[in-house]
Amino acid sequence: AQASVVANQLIPINTRLTLVMMRSEVVTPVGIPAEDIPALVSMQVNRAVPLGTTLMPDMVKGYA
């Protein structure tokens, strides 16, 4: 199954992502693919992302 990017902590709005904030997990619905984690580093989220939330393309500025 495809692993997705999941928030490893609460990520406040406009925060630049770092590796420690993200983990890969097989979840439904599928979000951003886990292999994109390196590309997500330093991108900003456009909303607060609670712990355990799957990151979707529309949550990350410049990803989609």
Rank of each mutant, 00 (worst) to 15 (best):
A1P: 12
A7L: 03
L40D: 00
G31E: 02
G62D: 15
T18Y: 04
T15F: 07
V45F: 01
I11M: 05
T53W: 12
T54G: 02
Q44T: 12
G62C: 04
M21E: 02
V49N: 01
I13E: 08
G31R: 02
A34G: 14
P12C: 04
A64I: 13
M56L: 10
V5W: 02
M43K: 15
M21F: 04
L55Y: 01
T15C: 05
L55C: 02
S42V: 03
A39D: 07
V60S: 01
L19A: 12
S4R: 00
M22V: 11
V49F: 03
N46R: 10
E25S: 08
G31I: 03
P29F: 04
G52E: 06
V45L: 07
P29C: 03
P29N: 04
A39N: 15
V30M: 09
L17G: 01
A1M: 11
G31S: 02
V30N: 10
P57G: 09
G31Q: 02
S24D: 08
P29I: 05
D36R: 15
V30C: 04
N14E: 09
P33V: 12
M59K: 01
A48G: 10
V30D: 06
R16Y: 14
L51W: 15
R23L: 05
N14Y: 08
P38L: 10
Q2I: 12
V6N: 00
A1G: 14
T18L: 08
V26S: 11
Q2H: 13
R23H: 05
P29D: 05
V26G: 04
L17F: 02
Q9D: 12
T53M: 08
M43S: 08
V27P: 01
R47T: 11
A39C: 04
M43L: 15
V30W: 13
R47C: 05
L17Q: 00
P57H: 14
V6M: 05
P33S: 08
R16P: 11
V49S: 02
A34P: 08
M59Y: 09
R16V: 15
R47N: 10
Q9A: 14
L19F: 07
T53K: 08
P57S: 09
I37H: 03
T54Q: 03
L17C: 02
